[in-house]
Write a protein that binds this DNA or RNA. Structure first.
Lengths: 133, 133
DNA sequence: CCGTTTTTAGTAATGATTACTATTTTTAAA
DNA sequence: TTTAAAAATAGTAATCATTACTAAAAACGG
């Protein structure tokens, strides 16, 4: 199972890397079809899964329905808006402390990994739910 | 939308409360059918969702496929076995420190809530994957 | 080149969940 | 109690994300 170089895989990866929006497979299907109108949804799914398995991209199994993908493989965290479903990166220096503690907890539990995610309204949805828009 | 008292809801809740296994809706459907053979899967889903919305039970939206339910509404964390899919409660006193930090992080981010979950092989699967069973 | 491996497009199938509907049960008030 | 409105039910159909299948095409390595 060696990787072949195909235009499909190349376009999927380069489009994903352009985005900060953590798209779903279907989002990427829509975007990639502008460059490769014949591509099939299965090809998008397969390539995303393969690249995630190879560590080239990240697969976000957030607690919603659809999985999301992230071209940034550095360890970082995400916040999902419960209103519009958008997923944004989260940055906070105190998360380093959390990581340190949890890495000890992992050892004590005999666990392999931990997952943290946040829920919070994004700016626009905050306004919308307050009736300001 | 007031709650009516139905035998279906009562049995679903009491069976869930007997279990420590964090069953899926389908698991509960199987169990409850022993007492109420006519119950339909939709009724199980609907009641679980309603009770979760009312805070009577917990709905675990873990990062796998199926959602799971927990009769214990106290705040606690879970570990999922990547091999057999089992979900177990996690206890560790240092998680209180993590909660404290994350509650500050929530404020700083303007977020509403956080979710932590662990992945780790359970005893039996550890043996199985080591080829000992 | 050329045989082998990998990938593809297109389609079908799956699995979890939700929606629909006609009927029944529960509720609360008269 | 009777009774009308509200809520819930069983059974079924529909939906949505994802995975599986297949025959044809493309990429690979020698």
């Amino acid at each position: 199972m060696k990787f072949s170089r195909t235009s499909q895989r190349r376009v999927i990866l380069s489009e994903l890397r352009k985005l900060k929006s953590h798209p779903t497979a279907d989002d990427l299907y829509t975007i990639v079809r502008e460059k490769l109108p014949q591509i099939s949804l299965g090809t998008v799914y397969r390539n995303l899964d393969q690249m995630a398995a190879a560590g080239i991209i990240q697969k976000l199994e957030l607690s919603g329905r659809q999985k999301r993908f992230d071209g940034n493989v550095e360890k970082h965290y995400h916040m999902r808006c419960p209103h519009c479903g958008a997923v944004k990166d989260v940055e906070n220096e105190r998360l380093a402390d959390v990581e340190n503690i949890l890495s000890d907890v992992l050892d004590e539990l005999g666990a392999d990994s931990f997952w943290i995610e946040f829920t919070g309204h994004c700016k626009d949805c905050n306004k919308a739910e307050a009736g300001l828009v």
